[in-house]
């Protein structure tokens, strides 16, 4: 890891700030325009989830170097209510906020790696990674 940036999510405009930062870091790392779009969109979904379900939280963007390859890791962390049923939350079309229910499963499809750790009442941490080809 050579670089990291943390964006606090506490108001709606922070969602835009987070995805713009993510895109600019992805661009500097050499990600294709389409991958930049995937990364920015994924960050947007994760940041909105924080805002919607936990009100406040953090988006951390880290540069990864591993076995001669480079990548981007995004950690979305909040101390909100947590996700009671992760399997259900990962189903296309399932939403508890009257949304489309595409946020989490969609983000998983946009990224190369996706991990979710959540405890009811303690918060949620979602880690996604995208590798540079």
């Amino acid at each position: 890891m050579v670089n990291s940036i943390t964006i606090e999510i506490s108001e709606e405009g922070d969602i835009v700030v987070a995805r713009q930062k993510g895109r600019s870091i992805a661009k500097n790392l050499g990600f294709s325009v389409v991958d930049q779009c995937r990364i920015a969109t994924g960050i947007s979904e994760l940041a909105r989830n924080i805002f919607l379900y936990a009100s406040t939280g953090l988006i951390m963007i880290l540069t990864l170097i591993e076995n001669n390859r480079m990548g981007l890791e995004i950690i979305a962390k909040d101390m909100g209510p947590g996700i009671p049923d992760i399997k259900l939350a990962m189903l296309d079309g399932y939403s508890t906020s009257n949304g489309l229910g595409m946020g989490l499963p969609g983000t998983k499809r946009l990224m190369d790696e996706f991990e979710i750790i959540s405890e009811t009442g303690a918060g949620t941490e979602i880690i996604v990674r995208k590798w540079l080809n």
Binding site: V33, V34, Q36, C37, R38, T41, E45, D92, L100, M102, P105, G106, T107, R109, L110
Partner: peptide
């Protein structure tokens, strides 16, 4: 609609 937007739109499942 930009190419990257079209790709992510589909992948998101929209």
């Amino acid at each position: 609609i930009q190419p990257g937007v079209a790709v992510t739109f589909m992948e998101l499942g929209l």
